[in-house]
Amino acid sequence: MVAAYLDHNASAPLLAEARDAVIAALDLPGNPSSVHGSGRALRKIVDDARDAVAELAGAEAKQVVFTGSATEALTQAIVGGAKAFNVDRIVYCATDHTATSKAAEATGLPVTMLPVDSAGSIDIETLASTLEAADGSGETLLVSFAWVNNETGVIQPRGRIEALVGPSRHLLVIDAVQAFGKLTLDFAASATDMIAVSGHKIGAPAGIGALLVKSHCDNVRLVPGGGQEQGRRGGTEPVALIAGFGKACEAYPASYERAGVAVLGETLETGLKGMDSEVVIFGEGAERIGNCVNFAVPGIKNTVSMMALDLAGIALSSGSACSSGKVGKSHVLAAMGVTPELSECGLRVSFGWSSTAKDVELFLEAFEKVLSRHRAKSGAAA
């Protein structure tokens, strides 16, 4: 039984509004492309959800393309964008999600990986010099970056990146999975060409995401199919999942605000530092989103602490949850220059709409026991 769910960056619990919308849509037969009454009813559900996603993203409804996930959306943007615009090179950040790096690899094109500093902030000067070199050689670049890092919560300087790439002939793609519903996307007015977002990070069911696409990228396709999604993503739309996504977009911002996640994160960090002076908060020197705390206590491996916390009913992770459920090495922390020994101690706590002060209290109580056992064991060994 889960006493405290602290893994929202992996997946948020399903919002009641989203669940109700999914169930209601499942009761309707038909295909949203059909012209009969049932089909029109399904089409209205899809259209209403598209409006809700667009509203939350600061986009126009026609700019929203539903996909099966944010991974698919990023793949469509990167692989499809590289093909549609005859791109010569893919540029992305060293701390980006593997959905980006794998999509870049799938293009078969040369790749430039932008380094980050020890706090996880992107090296803007390297990006500027990469763009300058491309202009000199005539290369066309596709630049992609995650606005909010899924492991550390570090916020990349979107404004500075858009100022460099946006006005140029190069393409700009943003992975906004961890920013959606938390930060203002304002896609329609932005200098970004495409943005990928996910449903299940904001309380929608898993299996639904979206790619926000400017009109000049209408020919960026991955699944041609039967012309659904304005010809930009084929396949019969999963109406129930889309309905849940739309309702989550309507309900999530207020639910997230009520949870007061920034205060919860501050309380957790204060509690951790009060327990042990050696605690390390990864990304502490950079601007971070308030719902994510990635930390380590030297000497306590995450495999040990996660097992103990799980037995206490505390659900969290050691980083990305997209590695077949394994506790593996973090490429994010490695890119930040964190030693392998310290990286193996890393734990990620992430809050969301269902989080409470009680969750933080339960976590701190459970982790203090982990820390006490570690100290006792270390003292006995000495």
Rank of each mutant, 00 (worst) to 15 (best):
A82T: 05
G80A: 06
D117I: 11
L56V: 06
T67H: 02
G120Y: 13
I90C: 11
A73C: 07
H97F: 10
R89L: 12
T71R: 15
E72G: 09
S129L: 07
V64M: 12
L109I: 03
S101K: 13
V79L: 15
K102M: 14
S121I: 08
E60I: 02
G81M: 13
T71C: 13
S129K: 09
Y92I: 04
A54T: 00
S129V: 06
T126L: 02
C93E: 10
A61I: 06
S137Y: 06
S129M: 08
V79C: 14
H97Q: 04
L74A: 11
H97W: 04
L127I: 14
A94H: 10
E60K: 12
D135G: 15
Q63P: 01
I78Q: 07
P110T: 01
S101H: 15
E60A: 14
V79I: 13
L127E: 05
G81K: 13
G58E: 03
L131A: 05
P115L: 04
A70P: 00
D96L: 05
T126Q: 07
A133L: 12
A54H: 00
A73Q: 00
E60P: 01
T100A: 04
E72H: 12
A57E: 01
S118V: 12
I78F: 14
G81T: 08
A106D: 10
I78H: 14
V91W: 09
A59P: 02
S118G: 10
G58Y: 12
A104T: 06
A70N: 10
G80R: 08
Q76V: 07
Q76P: 11
F66H: 01
V116N: 03
T112F: 09
D135L: 03
A119D: 15
I78T: 11
A54P: 00
I122T: 09
G80N: 10
V65L: 03
G68N: 07
